[in-house]
Structure formats: structure tokens, C-alpha cells
Design a binder for these strands. Structure first.
Lengths: 277, 277
DNA sequence: CATAAACTCTATAGTAACTATAGAGTCAAC
DNA sequence: GTTGACTCTATAGTTACTATAGAGTTTATG
């Protein structure tokens, strides 16, 4: 008496008939009574308790397999431990999401920069606050070689970043750097690439701070024009009587998911810190 | 020249050969050159750019299908919009995780209460701070009927909670309530069940506050002994000359995932607010 | 009581983003 | 020329279900 058909049971518990059949198959929740002739499943109302527990454990992020194993052992003492594990798991997922959120925010900011960038080739003066980067020295001059070398160097930077457990999120904002002394020697040579990290990222080998400064900036939409545009930038610096007071940076603002033969399509912001000479 | 075998390409990009084959099959990243005779895939180093973009978009939470659709349209203008969508999605997931975290914390707290509970049948005086509950009146006396009726009433409470968009998280902490006036009439009758909600849960129909008070409490490990234990509690109240100053509450502290015939196995904390008479 | 509508059964395929395997063929080095 | 490492296709498995087909059962209505 008081047996519930599978449909009614599903309805009462806001689930589907298929789900109940699936649970029955897994041995997670077997109907109280099964008609031998028709194979019809009939549940007792008290079985809702077990279904509630399944749903609750599912909600805590456990897999059906785990839940079943749980029910099979019926070990009450280890409940707090498993709850602690779930708490840790949730904490971990939250951190991941936090990283993702940051990554998206950086991308939004960068696309905004891209959309509102001054005309290509136009030089602008801009105050840029302090930034933190994670640098990798490839010991190969980026500008002596092709886009292919650059790709290899980027792979190495990434490998380094992975080895040092930097979150994936940072990978959307890379750049290359030419040191002040190299520039002063009139050379356009760089062996270092970097990625921007959070201001609160811990200091360690490879991590350095780029101080706040006034920068002269020029935007450039192709890897192949960087040199040309940078020359223009430095010409301007000298023409206007500015003095270079730090490293030159080529920041990749966005990479556009539009490919010419699968090649990178980058939008870069070339920048050099200056003061009135 | 400079073609990468699938293994090398996988290695450079910290992914697996199968993944690359899978992407090729989906048309997401097709090798630059495929040997007609052997079917061997060969990639160009520049194709890493596309793979980077795939990984980045994946990291933002997009599906491969979406990514492909994206590449196929190559619509740069809608990038900010899609980034905003991803941001919203992440925000939503974070809220969900937050609820889960709360649920786990409540469970941890409850199991702690359970593990450290005074001896079964022992009466203790305890100060309990203000709590907020979401109440549902079934209009059926819980104590006149069986566990089965209780199950049905719980289903109704849950249905109500779902209609009112209460998060699932709250469902791990339910109880029933007997109003003060009913008790004063010497009746042990309740038609109301509830679930605890966050202190910051918005006030609405069904939500009420249980004020802070000193409570006499007794713990009980079976649905069937509630009446008996509650009697004991009230006897004690009178013996000791206390005065009941609010509603009686039967709080289900934990439900143990140990089933006798799939039945609920509850650990309850019966509590009545009092003052010195 | 007959019929129709609603329900249930089993079995199979599909979902997403891969991983794992078998069995056959290919490449690079010694 | 042989070995070992690599790659190919094709298939099955993963999770927690959903969807479907085709057959049988229960319930409501006339």
C-alpha cells in the first residue's frame, strides 16, 4: 500500500523518470517493490529520504560513484573528513574561478584599449602606473629572427611559467622588453619576453617591477611593423628633446582570433618611459 | 621545412596527441600539411597561435563548438560582448560555489554539534543567537501521523522553497515548530515545518525571525522518540520553575546517510526558550 | 466492458572533451 | 636491416544524465 509509481516519485522529488531508472541501475536507489511480471517499479515514500541524501551529496559536488560507495560503507565517523575534503575542493574551484575572472577582466580592459586606441602610428603621452612582470630571457634576439622564432620563445616562456606554477590567466597579456642601456647604445635588440602578473603576485626569480612613469606610446597592428614604429617613436623622443629613463616595452594588447594562415594577429602598444630632457 | 610532427606539437604546447587529433577532426585546428600516403599530420610553428587562442577561450569557459563558430565568423566587434557574457557566467558560477560552500559549512557545524552532543536524554541550558527561518504550514498535524506524512510534508516544503527560488543549500537544515500558545494549551500539535536560511536572507512571506534566547535543549536520535523526549523537557521546565517564553523547535541537526530500509535516520535537537519564572 | 490516453518497460544512441586501447603501418637511428 | 619510437584509424570508455523507438500496462472515460 501507498506505493508510488516511478512517475509520481519523480514528480514528488522534482527529478525525472529516467534519472530514477538510472539510479536503480546503478544500485543507488532501488525501488521498494518491482512487479515480477511487468517490471514496473514502485517506490515507498520513505525512500525520498535516500533520494534527498543523494541530491544533497551531489550538491556538495560528489560523484554518484562516491555516493554509492558511501552508502555501502555506512561509515558515519568519516563524514566530517569528507565534508572537509569537499570544502577544500570548493575552495580550490573558487580560486580557479577567481583567476578566470581576472583573466576575463584583463581581456575586457585590453579590448577596450584596442577599440579606443589612437590612430595607428599616432604618438601619445600617457602616464602608466607601476606594473609587475614575470620575465624570461631566451638569449636569442627576437628582432633578428622571424615570427617563428618568436613562437618558439613564447613556448619557452610558457614552459617556464608552467614550471613555476603561474596561473594560466596571465597568458593573455605578454610582451617583450629592451633594456635602457641597450637602447642607449643605439641597438634594437631584445632577448627577453614577459607576461604581466597581478600587483600582489609574490616576488621571486624572474619577477620584476616596472615603475610608474610618463610614457610615449604608439600603437601597432602587426608584428612586422614593430621596428618601423619603434624607430618613429624614438625619432620623436629625440626631436622633442625628451630623455629615455627606462626600458622600452612592446606590450601585446590583444590577440585577435582572426587568422591569416593560422598566424598570430596582434595589436601592440609600444611604449618608452621619458622625462623632459 | 620546419614542420612539426603531432608529437612534437603536442609537447611544445603541453597537450596530448589525442587532443590534437580531436581538434583536427572537429576542424578546429587542421595541420598545415597532411601526407597523402601515410596520413601523417604535420604542423607549422605558427599554428601555435591558433592553439593558444583555443586554450585561452577554453579557459574562459567556452565550449569547443563555440570556439569553432567564433573562428568561423571572425567577428572582432562582438568580442567584448562575448567577454561580458563570460564574465557574467563566471559570476554566476561563483555565486553557486558560494552557496555550496555555505551548505558544506552548515553541515560541518552540524556534524560537530552531533559529535559533541551531550548524552542522549540529557537536558542542557544553552544560549542560542537569533536565527532566521523559512516556514511552511502544511495544515496537517505532524505528530498525529506517521513518518510517511512527515515525508509528504517535507516534499511540500521543498516544493514551496523551489517555487520561491530558495537555494538548494538550505535544505540540509530543517525542523518543525510548535507555537507558544499551543504549548500553553497543553497540546503537542504542529502543522509547520521550516528550513533555516542565512541571516541576510531577505524578508518575505514565510520568512520569520526566531529571537535570541536561553534554551533548554535535549538531543534525540529518532523521529519516534521526539514526543517522549519533549515531554521530559517540558517536565523539567516545570519542575525547575522556568517559564516558556517562545515557540518550541525541533531542529534536525543531521541526517545520517545510514539507512534502515531507506528510512530517514535523524539526529534532532529539541529546544524550548525559557526564563526564570 | 471496451477503448483511448497516459504511463512504463527495455534497449539504444547521444551529449562534451577528451583518454585509452588494438592492430596496423611509418620513421629515424644504428 | 632491424629495432624502437612514433603515428595512423577506429572503437570503446568516461559522467550523469536526456531522448527516442517500439512494445507492453494501467487508468480514466464512455
Amino acid at each position: 500500500m501507498d506505493k508510488l509509481s516511478i512517475g509520481r516519485m519523480a514528480e514528488l522529488n522534482h527529478t525525472s523518470v529516467q534519472t530514477l531508472r538510472y539510479y536503480a541501475k546503478l544500485g543507488l536507489l532501488e525501488p521498494e517493490y518491482v512487479d515480477e511480471n511487468t517490471g514496473y517499479r514502485y517506490y515507498g515514500i520513505k525512500q525520498c529520504a535516500r533520494l534527498d541524501m543523494i541530491n544533497y551529496m551531489k550538491y556538495l559536488g560528489m560523484s554518484l560513484d562516491n555516493i554509492k560507495a558511501w552508502f555501502d560503507t555506512e561509515n558515519v565517523e568519516s563524514i566530517p573528513e569528507m565534508l572537509q575534503q569537499q570544502a577544500a575542493l570548493i575552495e580550490h574551484k573558487m580560486k580557479e574561478l577567481d583567476q578566470m575572472k581576472k583573466a576575463v577582466q584583463v581581456s575586457i580592459k585590453n579590448y577596450d584599449t584596442y577599440m579606443n586606441a589612437p590612430e595607428d602610428g599616432h604618438i601619445v603621452l600617457q602616464h602608466i602606473p607601476e606594473r609587475k612582470i614575470y620575465c624570461y630571457d631566451s638569449e636569442v634576439n627576437i628582432y633578428e629572427n622571424t615570427l617563428e622564432t618568436y613562437e618558439y620563445i613564447l613556448r619557452e616562456l610558457r614552459a617556464q611559467a608552467i614550471v613555476n606554477h603561474l596561473p594560466m590567466a596571465y597568458f593573455c597579456n605578454v610582451g617583450s622588453i629592451i633594456r635602457q642601456d641597450t637602447i642607449e647604445q643605439g641597438q634594437f635588440v631584445s632577448t627577453e619576453v614577459f607576461l604581466f602578473v597581478d600587483p600582489d603576485f609574490e616576488m621571486q626569480a624572474g619577477v620584476e617591477i616596472i615603475p610608474e612613469h610618463d610614457y610615449l606610446c604608439i600603437y601597432c597592428d602587426s608584428f612586422f611593423y614593430e621596428r618601423e614604429y619603434a624607430d618613429k617613436l624614438f625619432d620623436y623622443v629625440h626631436e622633442q628633446g625628451y630623455e629615455v629613463i627606462g626600458d622600452y616595452i612592446c606590450e601585446v594588447v590583444v590577440e585577435l582570433p582572426v587568422f591569416h594562415h593560422d598566424e598570430r594577429n596582434m595589436f601592440m602598444k609600444l611604449q618608452v618611459p621619458i622625462k623632459r630632457g
